[in-house]
Simulated assay, not measured.
Amino acid sequence: MRTLDEHRAVALALAAPLGAVETPLADALGLVLAEDVRTDEPLPRWDNSAMDGYAVRRADVLSVPVVLPVVVDLPAGSADEAVVAQGTAARIMTGAPIPAGADAVVPVEETDGGTTHVQIRVTPVPAAHVRRAGEDAVPGDLVLVAGAELRPPHLAALASTGRATALVHRRPRIAVVSTGDELVAPGTPVRRGQLPDSNSWLLAAAVTDAGATALRLGPVADDPAALLALLLELDADESVDGIVTSGGVSMGAFDVVKAALLAQPGVEFVPVAVQPGKPQGLGRLPAGTPIWTLPGNPVSSFASFELFVRPAVRRMLGFASVERPAVAAVADEGWRTPPGRAQLMPVRFVRDDRVAPATARGSGSHLVARLAQAQGLAVVPAEVDEVLVGDTLHVLKVVP
């Protein structure tokens, strides 16, 4: 039986950062930068005003109050190459270029002004309210480092350098296939023995949450030949970067995924010493597409995706750190753990640093309705037979 850490390593090894593409800034949020970005120009590009007010020669306003004629209006964005001669002022808005001759800005609230003349009531300090060209960055300065996840401030920095696109690792497209004759689409009347298909929605949402694009397919009937044909079709599709299936990987007579793929030399099915999620499969299809085959019980699918698939998707995106944020939390309740197997216990935070099982039924693999209460997964090592109140746990935060 493979250990949890061993299987995590094998699952992650199926992934590598995808190629870099130029992407419009509007589509780059959350993607990973594939190159260092330097500025070719000073930022700001020219001296400009930090305030609405009047650009003056400081020597003209050493003795106040003083009245100066206003020779020009300079709104933000003005291309006017104005000059403030001795004994004059320019009315200026925040962001407008400082006119030649001026060396300070007097805020409008420190004046009694108009469009033709202004009374300056306060002598400004040298270079008051003047933003100097290049004080943010000079040509050649490193603005962003390859590997950065592009968040709103990063996009602003890119735009400030004049770039309309970013070179990023492209977003992977992951196909999600749920299997089982018993599954029906949500909203369809359910007869005895049937279940609404929740797994494809769970896993497609998890793929999207990880930063990839989900292609949701299913439910697919328990027909090994038809399933294999679908998987090989996805494998041949160059737009598909990975496949996740749920269900049909255990030892039952109708385990369709295992029946469909057992003869594929690049795919293996192994028991993993973990609860929930013991039956697992993974590998590569003939054209090289990685596939992760997860158990069908919803909590098993959820926990398996979090531990085995999500890190691989994050690696495809180009992230150096692919794990969920982890915290040390104290057990507010105790519970038994399965002998010889690591446990992935869905937990909720009862206080900032204390957790309890998300439901009274613990880590039961079928408890899909109760799974909504989970805020984290407590990873309990295989050598621990019982979690006691007050024990410190390693918890992956699945809800920010």
Rank of each mutant, 00 (worst) to 15 (best):
A9N: 06
V10Y: 11
A11G: 02
L12T: 08
L14P: 12
L14F: 15
L14Q: 13
A15V: 11
A15F: 15
A16G: 13
G19S: 13
G19I: 05
A20I: 01
A20F: 12
E22M: 14
T23M: 13
T23F: 03
T23W: 02
T23H: 01
A26E: 04
L29R: 06
G30W: 10
G30I: 00
L31F: 02
V32T: 15
L33Q: 12
A34P: 15
E35R: 14
E35D: 10
D36A: 00
V37Y: 03
R38H: 14
R38Q: 11
T39H: 09
D40H: 06
P42K: 00
P42D: 08
L43Y: 03
R45F: 01
R45V: 13
W46C: 12
W46Y: 15
N48E: 15
N48Q: 14
N48T: 12
D52N: 14
D52A: 11
A55Q: 03
R58K: 07
A59N: 06
D60V: 07
V61T: 09
V61H: 01
V61M: 10
S63H: 13
V64E: 01
P65L: 06
V67Q: 02
P69Y: 00
P69L: 01
V70M: 08
V70H: 01
V70L: 11
V72L: 12
V72Y: 03
D73W: 12
A76W: 09
G77C: 05
S78M: 08
A79P: 08
E81P: 11
A82C: 14
A82I: 10
A85N: 14
Q86N: 10
G87K: 02
G87N: 04
G87M: 11
T88S: 02
T88I: 04
A89K: 01
A90L: 14
A90R: 00
I92S: 00
I92H: 01
I92R: 04
M93P: 00
M93H: 12
T94S: 10
G95F: 08
G95Y: 10
G95V: 07
A96T: 09
I98L: 15
A100S: 15
A100H: 09
A100K: 07
A102K: 06
